[in-house]
Design a protein around this nucleic acid. Structure first.
Length: 403
DNA sequence: GTCAATTCACATGAAAGAGACCACGGTCTAGTG
DNA sequence: CTAGACCGTGGTCTCTTTCATGTGAATTGACGA
């Protein structure tokens, strides 16, 4: 419904750019997935037995972000469900869970809770022993004869946060079920993920493996064209825009999601400016905007202590050229805490916080050794000057005492 | 001059604590007949 | 007698602290040429 309304509003508001914006959104599942036929066929043939009521092999899917893993799996899922015969006595259920989404499911408990919810059960958000939740899950799925395929997206993240026990339990689950059989599809961004896993779990979990290699610029270009044609009105894209988008994303290890985001944001920018076409410069602007919003959003939502640490880094780097080191940051951070009458975290913790900022791409961190001078992190900012100023302003707002 | 041991200033890991949140079951209270 | 309020216990979850161990290269100092 809302999609239809979008269309209506867009055409009424004198929109000159978009025909159907939703096509460029990352959760949109297109009818065709270019350059992934091989993988889709592979997955489909592995999962095919479930149509006859037999258990399929477990699959492990690798590939970096934005290479179409999730999309392909969901596509196969839909096709399978479409072809499922109604008269079959064993039911087929396929459930998808993203293990990374914070607040949704990044612990064993929550993944199970999420699954139970999808299967129509009910489980409180916390408070129960995990054991109970397991039992409830087993009870729920074993109530009738069915085949269950669990798609666990970003499973590497889950294991990092939980432990491999979870996977072990999962693979062992089949032996505890009498009527139902479970197949697991694990999706991982990390190609080396299975290396550190218990061999028993590894062998049962990755009976089959499917690899998604990154798209190259040419393929990205085709994908973009494929989506842009129905999404935009005719002749609103300047020559070379698509190519530029593709080039940008190809630099980011062929991330198609990124490319689509770029194109969509560029479109929105053009629309807001009320110009007729998406120009090349809109891509640049979109690129900056995505970066900027991502980072400012993060900084805003980060707790006070994190902000203090980041502020220390910014201030210290402002004062002197070249990198700063863990110790400097910690000292300055302590000062800030004292002056703002806030509690001071231990150095151990601050070290972790610094590393988290690195992961977020706000700073660049390298561990260096200065010989007898010790071993420490070398910290540099990884964002543009103007963005730093903006970040600083945001943090200063929440500071009682300004420097 | 050479080489291994030492040393610095942290990094990195593991474990456990604090405090918020919550479910569950039992007990107490107040309202009802 | 019963429904709802009110606890106490035991669970999860996140953020931290504590304790322990690891680490890369400049520095040191013993050694031999």
């Amino acid at each position: 419904m809302s999609k239809e309304l979008d269309k209506i509003f867009e055409s009424f508001e004198g929109n000159r750019i978009f025909k159907d914006r939703s096509i460029l959104q990352s959760n949109y599942i297109p009818l065709e997935i270019p350059h992934r036929n091989e993988q889709i066929k592979q997955i489909a043939s592995i999962l095919a037995p479930v149509l006859k009521g037999e258990k399929s092999s477990n699959i492990f899917v690798y590939g970096k972000t934005g290479t179409g893993k999730t999309l392909s799996i969901l596509y196969v899922k839909d096709e399978l469900l479409k072809r499922m015969k109604k008269d079959n006595d064993t039911e087929l259920r396929i459930e998808y869970v993203n293990c990374k989404l914070r607040k949704v499911s990044d612990t064993e408990y929550r993944i199970l809770a999420e699954l139970i919810k999808k299967l129509g059960g009910e489980v409180p958000p916390t408070g129960l022993p995990t054991e109970t939740v397991y039992n409830k899950f087993i009870e729920l799925i074993d109530s009738k004869k069915q085949i269950l395929i669990l798609i666990l997206d970003e499973i590497d993240q889950a294991v990092k946060k939980i432990s491999t026990d979870f996977l072990y339990n999962l693979t062992r689950l089949n032996s505890e079920l009498s009527k139902t059989q479970i197949g697991v599809v694990g999706i991982s961004n990390d190609l080396t993920f299975l290396e550190g896993i218990d061999p028993r779990v590894r062998s049962s979990l990755s009976e089959e493996e499917v690899v998604f290699s990154p798209y190259n610029a040419l393929q990205l270009q085709e994908i973009l064209t494929h989506r842009a044609t129905p999404a935009f009105k005719e002749n609103v894209i300047e020559e070379g825009v698509i190519a530029k988008c593709a080039a940008f994303a190809a630099r980011e290890h062929g991330d198609a999601r990124r490319a689509l985001d770029l194109l969509r944001i560029a479109g929105e920018l053009a629309e807001r400016e009320n110009v007729q076409k998406i120009l090349l410069r809109h891509i640049d602007e979109a690129n900056i905007k995505i970066e900027r919003e991502k980072i400012l959003e993060v900084v805003k939502s980060e707790p006070k202590q994190f902000q203090y640490v980041l502020y220390s880094i910014i201030k210290l780097l402002e004062r002197k050229d070249g990198p700063v080191f863990t110790g400097d940051v910690y000292n300055y951070y302590q000062e800030i805490c004292v002056k703002n009458k806030s509690e001071v975290l231990t150095q151990r913790r601050v070290g972790d916080i610094i590393q988290e900022f690195d992961m977020l791409g706000i700073i660049n961190v390298k561990v260096i050794s200065k010989g007898r001078g010790g071993r420490m992190r070398e910290i540099k900012l990884a964002i543009s000057k103007s963005l730093v100023e903006k970040t600083k302003a945001i943090i200063e707002e929440s500071l009682d005492y300004n420097f």
